[in-house]
Amino acid sequence: MAPARTRAARAGCWTGEVAMLEAFADLSTPLVADACLRCGVPLRSAHSGIRPVVAGQGIAGRVLPVRHYGSVDVFLEAFGRAQAGDVLVIDNGGRSDEACVGDLAVLEAEAAGVAALVVWGLHRDTPELAAIGLPVFSYGSYPAGPARLDEREPEALVTARFGPHLVSASDIVFADDDGVLFVAAQRAEQVLVTAHQIWQSERDQARRIREGQTLRQQTAFDDYLARRAADPSYTFRRHLRRIGGAIEE
Rank of each mutant, 00 (worst) to 15 (best):
V32M: 10
P52N: 03
F79Q: 09
R62L: 07
N92Q: 13
H47M: 14
A99P: 04
V66K: 04
R81L: 12
G58I: 07
S71K: 06
F79D: 06
V54R: 12
N92W: 11
R44T: 04
A55D: 04
I59H: 11
R44P: 07
R95Y: 08
V72Y: 10
A35G: 04
G49H: 07
G93R: 06
A46T: 04
S28M: 10
G102I: 03
P42Q: 09
C39N: 06
R67L: 00
G61K: 08
D97V: 05
A78Y: 00
A55E: 05
V74Y: 01
L88S: 02
A84D: 15
Y69V: 01
T29A: 11
D103Y: 11
H68G: 08
S71H: 08
D91I: 01
G40F: 08
R38V: 06
G80C: 08
G94V: 05
D73Y: 08
D34R: 15
D73A: 11
T29E: 10
R44Y: 05
R44C: 10
G40W: 09
C36L: 07
R51D: 10
V54S: 12
P30V: 09
R44A: 09
N92D: 15
R81A: 11
V101P: 02
V101W: 02
G58Q: 05
D97Y: 06
L64Q: 00
I59G: 08
A78T: 02
P65Y: 02
L88I: 04
V54E: 11
L76R: 12
G49D: 06
L104F: 13
H47Y: 12
P65R: 00
A33N: 10
G94S: 03
D103Q: 13
V101D: 05
L43Y: 06
A78C: 03
P52A: 03
I90V: 13
V41I: 08
R81H: 14
E98Q: 11
I59L: 11
G56A: 08
A55Y: 01
F79M: 09
L37N: 13
G61I: 08
D73L: 12
